[in-house]
Design a protein around this nucleic acid. Structure first.
Length: 430
DNA sequence: TCTGGGGTCCTAGGACCC
DNA sequence: TCTGGGGTCCTAGGACCC
């Protein structure tokens, strides 16, 4: 636990919408939403859309009228675009300090403790300006001695126009910080979800400030160790560790809601094989091998008789081979699948990883390295071809068997930054 | 007709051992 | 027969995040 830290949270405003607007400046000032796969529900809203009362996760079919009435502009999520924009911002921040933690696609923490910045608010405004000029994304910045307070500050900076997008708690007198905590409802505190909110309310806790003054012992009883840590964090004492860039994933998942409900085995096989290949690719990129792969099938959550099935495969020899994983999962799918069911969603989940490097040294002798090397070489060629000639140039046969499971994406914006054919065209005037 | 996808951490409880 | 305490490891499930 360290309390002399200075942490900044850089949080992109309405990130997915802001990304779309970079290439569609005509959408400035208009209500815009980005929809999840299958164009099912809203996962990002512009301020104008929020003002129309469209909540996060709003099912599109329920809001069709609002969309039409107010001419809301809709996009299918374009994650290649968002990922690329995110990397550009991370690059700018990394140039400021290597002490950076990528928390999510639209949020980064910076550890400023060693930088001795005289005026943190002015510093924040300069960073904001740089990101705006170089990438075109508006950000909010919160600065404090703990992540939870930095988060709270950035939320405030986002909402309160007079702050100019930046709020620093460093050097602020305690009563002033308490005022900000009082403005945050308990349910909006980072780490308090919809389950805990009503419980905490029964103890009379309505705001972040109330929680800050709450008994740590009682909080631990109610919420586990996280409750005690949360109170310390709200008091400016840093409990959450700072994860530098380079940390590796502990699990990798690929899941999809199908474009339409299906029961045919061969269609689901195609989906599972495809998920396995994608997950394996990500696993290889992280330089790891897996010992455990699972798959699941579910019916629709919103229909009566909702059911889910899972099946797990454990590997004697850790692997990152697309073929091995796809074959094993498709085989266990065969045992799980029953044609009387109408499946709505499926997924593949890899876990229990081991580092490639570590495999060479630790497990020498226990594992057939020859097997491992052959698979490694095959996968290297596989990845190299797809890198060079484009994703999907070569695939496994099982992936291609059927398309019916693939989600619908009718409103996706072009791949402006990842496909030559979609490059925006700039016309000059003479 | 129509409601996303990808993660992390913590905890309780079972299996197993001495 | 059916009785004890203590420890570790593993896993499923809960809660949270964006």
């Amino acid at each position: 636990m360290k309390s002399n830290r200075i942490l900044a949270l850089i949080d992109c405003n309405n990130f997915f919408v802001s990304c779309e607007r970079v290439f569609r400046p005509d959408l400035e000032g208009r209500p815009v939403v980005v929809l999840s796969s299958n164009d099912g529900c809203a996962v990002a809203r512009s301020n104008e859309a929020k003002a129309l009362g469209i909540p996060m996760g709003a099912p599109a079919f329920k809001y069709r009228q609002v969309f039409e009435e107010h001419k809301v502009v809709k996009f299918s999520a374009n994650f290649e675009l968002y990922g690329d924009m995110s990397r550009r911002i991370v690059q700018i921040l990394t140039d400021i300090t290597p002490r950076i933690e990528i928390y999510s696609i639209d949020e980064c923490f910076l550890d400023l403790s060693e930088l001795s910045i005289a005026d943190l608010t002015a510093w924040g405004k300069a960073v904001r300006q740089t990101v705006w000029e170089q990438v075109g994304i508006p950000v909010s910045i919160g600065i404090a001695t703990s992540k939870t307070l930095a988060k709270l500050a950035s939320e405030r900076a986002k909402k309160d126009q007079s702050l100019g997008g930046v709020l620093s708690f460093i050097g602020l007198p305690e009563p002033a910080i308490s005022q900000y905590r009082q403005q945050l409802p308990i349910g909006d505190v980072w780490g308090v979800g919809w389950r805990m909110t009503p419980k905490l309310r029964t103890y009379g806790l309505e705001t972040a400030e109330d929680l800050r003054r709450f008994s740590p012992q009682l909080a631990q009883q109610l919420m586990g160790i996280r409750g005690r840590q949360l109170i310390a964090e709200l008091n400016g004492i840093s409990c959450h560790s700072f994860e530098q860039i380079g940390r590796k994933a502990k699990s990798i998942a690929r899941t999809r809601t199908f474009g339409e409900d299906v029961s045919d085995l061969y269609i689901i096989e195609s989906a599972i094989a495809s998920f396995a290949v994608q997950a394996a690719f990500k696993l290889r990129k992280s330089g790891q091998l897996t010992r455990r792969a699972a798959l699941f099938l579910t019916t629709s959550r919103f229909k009566p008789g909702y059911k889910s099935w899972t099946s797990e495969v454990v590997f004697e020899q850790p692997t990152a081979d697309s073929g091995t994983l796809a074959a094993a999962l498709v085989q266990s799918l065969g045992k799980l699948h029953n044609p009387i069911n109408l499946y709505h969603r499926a997924g593949v989940w890899l876990s229990d990883f081991i580092d490639e490097q570590q495999l060479q040294t630790d497990l020498l002798g226990h594992i057939s390295l020859d097997f491992h090397h052959k698979s490694g070489q095959r996968m290297q060629s596989f990845d190299a071809i797809n890198r060079r000639y484009g994703r999907g140039t070569i695939t496994f046969a099982a992936e291609k068997l059927a398309k019916r499971w693939q989600p619908k994406q009718q409103l996706r914006s072009p791949h402006y930054v990842s496909d030559w054919a979609d490059l925006p065209i700039v016309r000059g005037r003479r």
